[in-house]
Design a binder for these strands. Structure first.
Lengths: 198, 198
DNA sequence: TAAATAATCTAACACCGTTAAGCAAAGATA
DNA sequence: TATCTTTGCTTAACGGTGTTAGATTATTTA
């Protein structure tokens, strides 16, 4: 019975169509615009049909997340294979990670729990500027006068902020890093950057 | 007319109650459980009343965000004032930032767009482990044998990942960092960490 | 062709943010 | 004091969400 296979193929197609429609909507309108009815519209079915292919909306997001990891893995593998020196390979892998994040922004967002909506008006409100200004000024104070330019302070400021915020985010989205490890990474990073600017 | 003031005081109270109820709900049930009707329930009013005090739900989140920044600023200021050496002050400020993030987890989430829901099952799916394993193995390869322990590799792995993910997140949630600055911070961090482990 | 099965839709539930209309109590005005 | 106006608050509704149950249509099987 080849018709069994044909039908299975059609079903597989619909499943992919759901995923494709989803990512398309997200790319066009953002994650919060993604709805079951909109997906259904795009694949020319009604919403309940989707539940024949995915348990619920979360299952769709999970599958997209998984596909994101597959794609990221392939890109990093390819980047690695362009070099032979391990240090160069490692750097290339991180650059591939970086490039993936912006090339597949929406996938990265769902993979690592990055919200975009928030705090667009940060610069308009002085309260929100206070903490970063405090840090910025203190960094400027530490950097010796001959090296002290706005660009250099910016660089150090973002170096600090990236590693601290990154470590916090990682801890909040996945739980399994030890207290001791956090302490070490944080301490290393802070003293490392402070030393680099003296 | 002292009654005018009394009424104004009552109104101010209701406004604070809305904010307090909101953060309470979020702490108990997470951000996605926060709804206008639930807030109204908690302050013993009906939902439309909230619109007398806030333009919409986003305005509530924005105000909570602002309050979060105020609190963070105060904590960082206090931390700074415990020291006189600028480097110690800077370190204390970042530690205050770190501590705030976990003490006021929910505020930090809305301030910096960190989602929690996602990818709880990351370790269950091998596809999702692949990229991090690749990096981990390559780091281990670079670290000289006499220093190479799992803990040390972990430390370097999280140092890398934190700074890269942190910089990506910052770029995604606020737009105003220059391409050149990103490149510099990224390059500095990667080469810095690679050098630190050789 | 008739029965059984699969594919799909309609309708509904309970929730969401938000708005408009109405009611009841309080205050002001005559 | 009696009427008018303002205020505070509620009910009801709109259009949206994820999700499920039941009915309906189409296809396959006997």
């Amino acid at each position: 019975m080849a018709s069994k296979e044909r039908i299975q193929r059609l079903k597989d197609d619909t499943r992919s169509n759901i995923l494709e429609a989803s990512i398309k909507i997200v790319k066009e309108e953002g994650w919060q615009a993604l709805s079951m009815r909109k997906i259904a519209d795009k694949i020319e079915y009604t919403a309940p049909i989707i539940y024949e292919y995915f348990a619920n909306k979360d299952a769709i997001l999970n599958e997209l997340t998984r596909q994101g990891y597959v794609q990221l893995g392939e890109l990093m593998e390819a980047a690695k294979n362009k070099y032979t020196d391990p240090a160069e390979q490692l750097e290339a892998m991180w650059l591939a990670y970086w490039n993936f994040a912006f090339a597949e922004k929406e996938l990265y967002q769902v993979m690592y729990g990055v919200e975009v909506n928030c705090c667009a008006f940060e610069n308009s409100c002085p309260d929100m500027k206070a903490p970063s200004n405090m840090i910025w000024d203190k960094i400027a104070e530490i950097i010796p006068e001959e090296k002290r330019t706005d660009e250099y302070v910016d660089r150090k400021y973002y170096s600090f902020w990236s590693v601290v915020h990154g470590l916090i985010s990682i801890n909040m989205t996945r739980k399994f890093t030890s207290e001791e490890l956090n302490r070490q990474v944080l301490k290393d990073a802070i003293s490392g950057i402070i030393n680099s600017m003296k």
